[in-house]
């Protein structure tokens, strides 16, 4: 059996056996439920007019666009909803996944996976059997993709369960749209994980990698890039439009060839770029 297959199998075994994945997924589940509860609570309070000041923030949102995310600023914002809203699961997923909050967990998992490997010294065992060191990076990619997919499915299942319990009128919406949207977001989230993996491979520091994860998830990168756009004032080109996090937050659930095409191209470009950097770093640097 080829060594890359063996390495992928090893990463899968490590994924199943290590605490990191389970603890992170537990926090994902708790956070998803908490976010849902906070959104419902905020919605109920808004409806009851108990938060006058906060209501002003959302005054401009019409019922039609009640579930759209305000993602241009820093931080996580999920618009409130109420029990009696006519809502589809399709739009609920869009709200939660495009908020970017779950990127944090992907980044934490990626940083932990890479840094634990170096901290434990286990990579010394792998270095012996993987002269072509790109195979180790490829195996880590497989592990990250599995984690991202599991995280997404977990979030979907929790939202589905809570939605069925909470909403009076709950509709699934278009299953095809959901699956397509989910697939693209898995790709974008996975590329984000690969970015953090690349950072962790370069600096081998968990704290910095996780700090960068949190900052990027909050949208700091978007703010910086929009300022760069303002400075550069390039015609017909926006740096922000080609940023990964921007596409995570702004990808619409309805298919749009141009927007989706750009998102896909950005994802593939950065996937190749970050993996290339990781492979170069692993190949050139000593394993121990």
């Amino acid at each position: 059996m080829s060594s890359i297959t063996n390495l992928i199998k090893m990463e899968m075994a490590r994924l199943v056996r290590s605490k990191t994945a389970y603890v992170t997924l537990l926090f994902v589940a708790i956070f998803a439920a908490l976010l849902f509860a906070m959104s419902a609570s905020f919605g109920e309070q808004s409806q009851n007019n108990t938060l006058e000041k906060d209501n002003a923030m959302y005054a401009e949102i019409s019922d039609e666009h009640a579930m759209e995310i305000k993602s241009s600023g820093v931080g996580f914002v999920v618009v409130d909803f109420t029990r009696n809203m006519d809502i589809t699961f399709e739009r609920l997923i869009h709200s939660f996944l495009s908020s970017g909050v779950f990127l944090v967990f992907c980044g934490i998992f990626a940083a932990n996976t890479v840094c634990n490997k170096y901290k434990s010294g286990f990579q010394k065992n792998l270095g012996i059997y993987s002269h072509k060191k790109w195979q180790m990076v490829a195996a880590e990619n497989a592990s990250l993709l599995i984690f991202v997919a599991v995280e997404m499915i977990l979030v979907i299942l929790i939202l589905l369960f809570l939605s069925v319990c909470y909403f009076d009128r709950f509709r699934l919406g278009s299953a095809v749209s959901i699956i397509r949207y989910l697939g693209m977001q898995i790709l974008l989230y996975d590329v984000f994980s690969v970015l953090i993996m690349c950072l962790a491979e370069l600096i081998r520091g968990k704290v910095i990698a996780i700090t960068v994860t949190c900052l990027l998830s909050m949208g700091i990168g978007n703010v910086v890039l929009s300022k760069i756009d303002d400075l550069l004032k390039l015609k017909n080109f926006s740096v922000l439009d080609h940023c990964l996090i921007y596409h995570v937050k702004m990808l619409p659930v309805t298919y749009n060839a141009k927007v989706w095409g750009t998102a896909g191209a950005v994802a593939i470009f950065f996937f190749l770029l970050y993996n290339g950097i990781s492979i170069a770093a692993v190949s050139q640097r000593d394993m121990a």
Binding site: R14, R17, S18, K19, N116, S120, G121, F122, Q123, K124, N125, I128, A288
Partner: peptide
């Protein structure tokens, strides 16, 4: 080749 170089490379949580 099998090698034990410096400290053993093992996962402490396994």
């Amino acid at each position: 080749i099998g090698a034990l170089i410096e400290a053993p490379g093992i996962y402490g949580d396994m």
